[in-house]
Design a protein around this nucleic acid. Structure first.
Lengths: 265, 265
DNA sequence: CGGTTCAGTCACAGTTTGTCACAAAATGGC
DNA sequence: GCCATTTTGTGACAAACTGTGACTGAACCG
């Protein structure tokens, strides 16, 4: 496979211009859409259309790539081809549904009503028949995104979870960070989101761009140092000696790595 | 956003009128109507007609979306298509009836008298056959809303419920907030409504707009800070240390989150 | 060892939020 | 209806949060 199966394209709007239609400045960032289709032409086509409209786009050619993209970044919506080699779209959709509530729009070549019914029963949020126009697709996407919570940031959120690492306990239900000795250390929203992104992917190098996507749901600007600052702030609260961090290690030229073993309940 | 698929639209300039003459009770805000139909054209059509008439409108394409809308916002009336893929309208209607008394108007393509009878038996409050004119639809809606309690705000209210969280007990029957030690803490109507909205959706980030809809049944104005003030007041009564709230947490740039586990009896 | 690039952190500015005081509105009693 | 009381929303200002620029130090390269 020489071909990049899961890259991001599309730029983040810088506020005023850019975004195809949104005159709502409140939206913190463009939604991140994952296109899963085995035909490259379709991926490229859809990908271009969506980025043109201001969305951030990643692509995947099969189920495995899809899963990887879902772990590596914070996806707001999945465009899923019904017919895929290996696992087909329906089972992927069902699996996706089973463990998250990321909205899914099904794509299919056939216009069968049957497929549509099956798709919706499998938990797809909408259904678009190929060939489709980009205007229609975008309208559907916008509709589904709006319907499914309006707040793309919390699209992941579901059952409260509980993480333990080092001498810390992180409770997503209470949104609290608790130290061994019983003291609750207050975290700002940004610090909390960043810590969750880390705790869910321990012992892996995470690039700044990835962290920005995972924690803030946006893509990096030219010289974006905001993650560094946030890591610095987080270290000050987490580390015994922020000058020599043990928990969040720096990977020179690569990003950061959350090193402790995480007990994930 | 040319296409209002599931946002609220339509303003009500309630304001001054109010006084005296009325069969119309001081309606605080426009009723919020949920349109459930799998055909987009119908959703759009109906949606436009209703917003033009001043209603706030959300839409859903299937049962799942309907349920989501019902949890996410305070719906005053449901327009429900009889024929839906997956679960059909009748079972949805019955389910809806089972756990709330939100009025339902059934839509159906066929003019069968049979359907009508079944629909009404299932608990629908009225029945409109497609194709229908918007004038007729709106007349029916107004009639049903008036009939069903006249006060859209209390459309949800049904069996008294009992919530327990942290060291508090909230009794919707008595409309009282009781602390562990037996002391009853008086809440104003607004504080009470807001607390109910929170207690029914624990461990979820709720935007200010959503809270405004859930607790006050209206949509947000430009720089509406009333929710912040109300949260502040509520915190002063609920929290041990209002300066460092544990129960209602702030999500910077996102809204608020009610963190304690809620025992819901 | 010197130059270059990358990372840590501080200070600052732009936003967002907390909260007080006050006015408008609703409520209740007469 | 009229006035006292309570409640709710608004404006204003302080505090908190986040991202950016600047400066400094550390890591890499030859």
């Amino acid at each position: 496979m020489t071909e990049p199966t899961s890259e991001t394209s599309g730029h983040n709007n810088s506020g005023t211009a850019g975004t195809g239609s949104g005159y709502k400045p409140a939206m913190s960032a463009a939604p991140h859409i994952l296109v899963v289709d085995d035909h490259r032409e379709i991926r490229d086509l859809v990908s271009r259309a969506l980025s043109r409209d201001g969305y951030r786009v990643s692509t995947a050619a099969d189920g495995r790539a899809m899963r990887k993209a879902l772990v590596d970044s914070r996806i707001d919506l999945v465009l899923l081809d019904l017919m895929l080699p290996g696992e087909d779209g329906l089972s992927l959709c069902r699996a996706l549904r089973a463990e998250s509530n990321i909205p899914v729009i099904m794509l299919t070549a056939k216009g069968d009503e049957v497929d549509r019914v099956i798709g919706l029963e499998m938990g797809a949020d909408d259904y678009v028949a190929k060939p489709f126009g980009s205007r229609e697709l975008i309208a559907r996407i916008r509709a589904v995104l709006r319907r499914s919570g309006e707040a793309p940031a919390s699209a992941h959120g579901e059952r409260p979870k509980h993480y333990r690492f080092d001498r810390w306990a992180l409770d997503t239900g209470a949104r609290e960070l608790l130290r061994d000795d019983g003291v609750t250390v207050p975290l700002s929203t940004g610090e909390y989101d960043l810590l969750i992104a880390f705790a869910e992917r321990p012992q892996r190098v995470l690039s700044r761009e990835q962290l920005l996507d995972l924690a803030r749901g946006r893509s990096a600007a030219a010289f974006d140092r905001s993650i560094d600052t946030q890591v610095s702030r987080l270290r000050k609260k987490l580390e015994r000696d922020p000058g020599e961090p043990k928990i969040i290690k720096t990977v020179w030229g690569g990003g950061y790595m959350f090193t402790p073993a995480v007990e994930h309940k």
